[in-house]
Computed example of a mutant assay.
Amino acid sequence: MISAGDFRNGVTFDMDGDVFQIIEFQHVKPGKGAAFVRTKIRNVITGSVTDKTFNPSDKFPTAYIERRDMQYLYQDGSLYYFMDTETYEQEPIDASKLDDNFKFVKENMEVKVLSYKGNIFGVEPPFFVELEITKTDPGFKGDTATNATKPAVLETGAEIKVPLFIEEGTMVRIDTRTGEYMERA
Rank of each mutant, 00 (worst) to 15 (best):
G118E: 11
P126F: 04
F128V: 08
K135H: 12
A148D: 09
E89S: 08
D76Y: 13
T134D: 05
G5S: 04
Y80G: 01
M182N: 11
G179S: 09
P125Y: 04
T170R: 08
K103Q: 13
D69S: 02
P92Y: 03
L79A: 01
R8D: 06
V129N: 10
E132R: 14
F25N: 05
H27D: 06
V172R: 06
V113P: 04
R38K: 15
V19C: 08
D6Q: 07
Q71A: 10
N119Y: 15
D51M: 14
Y81Q: 03
N43Y: 09
D69E: 12
T146Y: 14
V105F: 04
R177K: 11
T156W: 06
V28F: 07
E110Q: 13
E183P: 05
R8P: 00
F104N: 02
N147E: 13
L73R: 05
T170A: 10
L164D: 01
F127Y: 08
N147R: 15
R173L: 12
R8W: 11
G139L: 04
P61V: 06
P30C: 12
E91R: 12
R184K: 15
V113D: 00
N9P: 02
A185W: 06
D99E: 09
A35T: 11
L98A: 01
Y88N: 10
E124N: 05
V28G: 12
E130G: 07
V162L: 07
F36S: 10
V129T: 11
G122P: 06
T176Y: 05
A158E: 05
K52Q: 15
Y81K: 10
T62P: 00
K150Y: 06
S57D: 07
G122K: 09
D100E: 11
D76K: 15
E89N: 07
D137K: 14
V162C: 13
T156D: 04
T12G: 03
F121P: 02
V172G: 04
E66R: 12
R184S: 13
E86T: 12
S78L: 11
F20N: 02
K141R: 02
D137R: 12
Y88M: 06
K106T: 09
K40H: 09
V28M: 10
E91G: 00
K32R: 15
E24K: 15
T149K: 14
T50N: 08
F140Q: 00
N55V: 11
N9F: 00
V113A: 04
D18G: 02
P138M: 04
P61Y: 01
H27L: 07
K141L: 01
D51L: 14
A158Q: 06
F104P: 04
I160F: 09
Y81W: 12
D99R: 13
I166A: 06
T87C: 03
E183I: 01
F60Y: 10
M15Q: 02
T149V: 08
